[in-house]
Write a protein that binds this DNA or RNA. Structure first.
Length: 472
RNA sequence: CGGGGUGUGGCGCAGUUGGCUAGCGCGCAGCGUUCGGGACGCUGAGGUCGGAGGUUCAAGUCCUCUCACCCCGACCA
């Protein structure tokens, strides 16, 4: 086992995390603070995410486009709360071609403003709606404290931006996007969390309403894993995005925006990783199966090549590790740290019996399959790994969700366990600031409303149920 | 931005009250022996000590300035 190579995950989570990223060859640090070089193995995971999500985005009627990296400062300044939210973390270009620029340019922290200035020109009639654009790109937010994938100064994401005739249609889009994200997290990342609304102080700068997907990490901290915003008509009014309706009246559009970033990979590493390194869900694994020969023996190699072809023909992402300068044990550890879901061990025994020994990464369990049954076994095994990783994630979430009736309970739970604390609460920024100062926890999302209860902080009647947690 | 810490081959580190040619482990290259859970031997390549200035016969080591990075907080997908 590779245990010795890694710091302990529970007692040294930060060291474990950064070390796994290095050992699994996912990423390296860039020369500028907070930047990272995503290496081919790490980027391949992102490509799997893109391959899964891009068709879903298109299915929602959203087309891919590309908008410029540079945004005139005046654009950002048009929407007041938007610029207030992003100003502290902007990277600004002041010089170009050796000369000081007339107007400084922000490196996009998100693309609402530059897109909506264009939307304003593109939208005249109700026939131009809905307008639905997505872009896969990088954005820059000058973060004070950074960690690879989880919080980097530059990160990759997709951002969807839509404009609609009615508020109902916009809300449907907002919810549709969040539904897609939930599917991606469930079915591909094998991660579960809670979907809900953000509080006044946590919502996106410029949005009327923000939906979020909040996941629990093994450390007891929550990770905001993606968001989907109902922008109302805030940007429509500042960017003058109007259309003429069939009844000849003029109206502002209703807008949404939604994004999922490479932070998701950070969540994946934290949530599924173990003492031996990365554990990848098969759906996102660049390599699903690696075949490792016990010895560089020609009979074994020949048999391995046969299995490799057999699996590749069945559509599996398989890699046959034929390096002859690394020994068997070394290779096993190498691939385990990299989180490959299934390792096939091949030795003289397997060749003779025309079998294969399959070892699953998540549990470490082994079984033997004949060559004839191999494809079926692999298929079932990959599905089972995917399923049980999701179940594990759900169990972690459930075990770390506790209810508190009052502020004392609340503080006691956070102190003892961290995790999510479920409470009745009336959304109130001042109260939230006080709670945060005292406990480091903030509201993560509202998960229910229309119930009967008592605000855990003020003791007043409340109808909304919220989750609080410390967050990454 | 506040508190703490670290800068010496690719990585991890040692280097004493200043003293000779700056070491060790891992990794890397070549050759050989090995090969069912991180093998071993031999040979070899690779650093001018974060940077600048200073003290001294002599600086990795002392002084001044400076830069970078890491960890802990406040800000955040």
């Amino acid at each position: 086992m590779a245990k010795d190579l890694l710091p302990d995950k529970t007692t040294q989570p930060a060291e474990w995390y950064t070390r796994v990223i290095q050992l699994a060859d996912l990423a390296d640090y860039g020369p500028v603070k907070g930047t990272m070089i995503i290496k081919p193995y790490g980027y391949a995971i992102w490509e799997r995410v893109q391959a899964a999500m891009d068709p879903m985005i298109k299915q929602m009627g959203v087309g891919n486009a590309y908008f410029p990296l540079f945004i005139p400062m005046s654009y950002l300044e048009r929407e007041k709360s938007h610029v207030e939210g992003f100003a502290p973390e902007l990277a600004v270009v002041t010089h170009g071609g050796g000369e000081k620029l007339e107007e400084s340019l922000a490196v996009r922290p998100t693309s609402e403003t530059i897109m909506y200035a264009a939307f304003s020109n593109w939208i005249q009639s109700w026939r131009d709606l809905p307008l639905a654009i997505n872009q896969w790109c990088n954005v820059v937010r000058w973060e004070k404290r950074t960690l690879p994938f989880l919080r980097t100064s530059e990160f990759l994401w997709q951002e969807g931006h839509t404009a609609h005739q009615t508020h109902e249609e916009a809300i449907q889009m907002q919810q549709g996007a969040m539904g897609m994200y939930a599917t991606i997290y469930h079915d591909f990342f094998a991660l579960d969390g809670y979907i809900g609304q953000k509080s006044t102080s946590e919502r996106f700068a410029g949005a009327d309403d923000t939906l979020t997907f909040e996941m629990m990490m093994p450390s007891g901290k929550a990770l905001q894993s993606c968001t989907s915003h109902d922008l109302g008509q805030n940007f429509a009014k500042t960017f003058d995005i109007k259309f003429q309706a069939p009844d000849r009246t003029e109206a502002y559009v209703w807008q949404t925006s939604w994004g999922l970033s490479t932070r998701s990979i950070g969540g994946l590493i934290m949530a599924h990783g173990d003492a031996n390194g990365l554990v990848l869900p098969p759906q996102l694994a660049p390599i699903e199966i690696v075949i490792v020969p016990v010895q560089p023996d020609e009979n074994i190699l020949e048999y391995g090549r046969k299995l490799e072809i057999q699996l590749a023909d069945a559509g599996r992402r398989v890699f046959f590790d034929t390096r002859d300068d690394e020994r068997f044990g070394y290779k096993l550890n190498k691939w385990e740290v990299k989180g490959v879901p299934v390792i096939i061990k091949l030795g003289a025994k397997e060749v003779e019996e025309q079998k294969a020994t399959l070892k699953r990464r998540d549990t470490g369990g082994e079984k033997v399959a004949s060559q004839a049954e191999l494809n079926g076994h692999i298929e079932a095994l990959l599905q089972d790994i995917q399923r049980s990783l999701l179940a594990k994630s759900q169990a972690l979430r459930n075990e770390n969700t506790r209810e508190a009736a009052n502020y004392d309970d609340f503080k006691a739970i956070l102190k003892e366990h961290k995790g999510f604390v479920k409470v009745f609460w009336n959304d109130n920024p001042e109260a939230e600031a006080k709670i945060k100062a005292a406990t480091k926890a903030t509201s993560r999302c509202k998960v229910a409303s229309g119930q009967q209860g008592t605000d855990f902080f003020t003791g007043e009647p409340a109808t909304d149920v919220w989750l609080f947690a410390q967050s990454y």
